[in-house]
Amino acid sequence: MRRRRSLDDQGRLADIAHSALLGVALAILLDFDLTIGVLLIVALLVIPAATARRFASSPERMAVGAAVAGIVAVAGGLFASANLDSPSGPSIVVVALLLFVVSRIRFSRSAGNGR
């Protein structure tokens, strides 16, 4: 009986250790996921505004342009996500970044002032 009890104690200790390690791994994963989500949200706030800034003559027009750029980025990102079987958040940010790069290249070539 004594031997069986010690095996039961070792099993409980292993269960406790397993649960503790699983909890630590889950906490790290949730913290990482939260960080990635914050970065995606910040990117979606900043990139459309930076895209619209090149074309806006007033803050009001910049806000409207940023909203349009954001809508286009979200629609394009969701379309790409569905067709490429990729995560939607990063796909939206990539489309927003592509819009920004294209606007920089196209606007710089047409304006010629390097702004």
Score class of each variant (00 low, 15 high):
residue 93 V to N: 05
residue 5 R to L: 10
residue 66 A to M: 05
residue 110 S to A: 12
residue 83 N to H: 13
residue 84 L to Q: 09
residue 28 I to S: 00
residue 114 G to V: 14
residue 32 F to H: 04
residue 55 F to C: 04
residue 23 G to W: 01
residue 35 T to N: 08
residue 94 V to P: 02
residue 42 V to A: 05
residue 49 A to M: 14
residue 91 S to H: 09
residue 97 L to T: 11
residue 65 G to F: 00
residue 69 A to I: 11
residue 111 A to K: 13
residue 60 E to A: 12
residue 55 F to I: 02
residue 89 G to A: 13
residue 89 G to Q: 13
residue 62 M to C: 01
residue 75 A to V: 12
residue 5 R to G: 04
residue 49 A to N: 01
residue 41 I to K: 02
residue 67 A to T: 14
residue 31 D to L: 10
residue 9 D to C: 13
residue 89 G to D: 09
residue 63 A to V: 12
residue 52 A to T: 02
residue 102 V to K: 01
residue 109 R to D: 01
residue 42 V to D: 07
residue 86 S to H: 10
residue 23 G to V: 08
residue 66 A to D: 00
residue 12 R to H: 06
residue 16 I to C: 06
residue 46 V to Q: 10
residue 89 G to W: 13
residue 63 A to H: 13
residue 57 S to Y: 04
residue 24 V to Y: 11
residue 51 T to P: 00
residue 90 P to F: 05
residue 74 V to R: 10
residue 49 A to Q: 08
residue 65 G to S: 07
residue 15 D to F: 15
residue 74 V to L: 11
residue 66 A to K: 08
residue 98 L to G: 07
residue 114 G to P: 10
residue 108 S to D: 07
residue 45 L to T: 10
residue 41 I to R: 05
residue 43 A to E: 07
residue 110 S to L: 15
residue 75 A to N: 04
residue 90 P to N: 10
residue 40 L to F: 13
residue 23 G to D: 05
residue 90 P to E: 04
residue 79 F to H: 03
residue 29 L to W: 00
residue 86 S to A: 14
residue 34 L to E: 12
residue 75 A to G: 12
residue 71 I to C: 15
residue 107 F to Q: 03
residue 100 F to V: 01
residue 14 A to H: 07
residue 7 L to A: 13
residue 64 V to Q: 10
residue 102 V to W: 03
residue 94 V to G: 03
residue 26 L to P: 00
residue 84 L to S: 01
residue 14 A to N: 09
residue 83 N to P: 03
residue 46 V to I: 09
residue 45 L to K: 01
residue 19 S to V: 13
residue 16 I to A: 10
residue 83 N to T: 14
residue 33 D to F: 13
residue 80 A to R: 03
residue 39 L to S: 15
residue 81 S to N: 05
residue 14 A to F: 06
residue 64 V to E: 11
residue 67 A to L: 14
residue 48 P to A: 04
residue 73 A to N: 02
residue 96 A to E: 04
residue 38 V to W: 03
residue 110 S to M: 07
residue 73 A to D: 09
residue 70 G to F: 02
residue 19 S to N: 00
residue 1 M to C: 06
residue 6 S to D: 06
residue 106 R to Y: 11
residue 76 G to A: 06
residue 5 R to W: 04
residue 94 V to N: 08
residue 9 D to F: 10
residue 24 V to N: 11
residue 37 G to A: 14
residue 53 R to Y: 01
residue 85 D to I: 12
residue 82 A to E: 12
residue 5 R to K: 09
residue 88 S to N: 06
residue 108 S to W: 00
residue 28 I to C: 02
residue 8 D to E: 15
residue 86 S to Q: 09
residue 18 H to E: 15
residue 12 R to I: 10
residue 13 L to E: 14
residue 105 I to T: 07
residue 85 D to A: 11
residue 100 F to P: 02
residue 108 S to H: 10
residue 80 A to Q: 08
residue 95 V to H: 03
residue 30 L to H: 11
residue 108 S to E: 02
residue 28 I to H: 05
residue 21 L to H: 01
residue 35 T to F: 15
residue 103 S to I: 02
residue 39 L to Y: 01
residue 24 V to Q: 05
residue 94 V to A: 15
residue 18 H to K: 09
residue 10 Q to H: 07
residue 43 A to C: 03
residue 101 V to Y: 09
residue 6 S to W: 02
residue 104 R to F: 04
residue 108 S to G: 12
residue 64 V to R: 03
residue 8 D to A: 10
residue 71 I to T: 11
residue 71 I to N: 11
residue 4 R to M: 02
residue 15 D to Q: 13
residue 45 L to D: 01
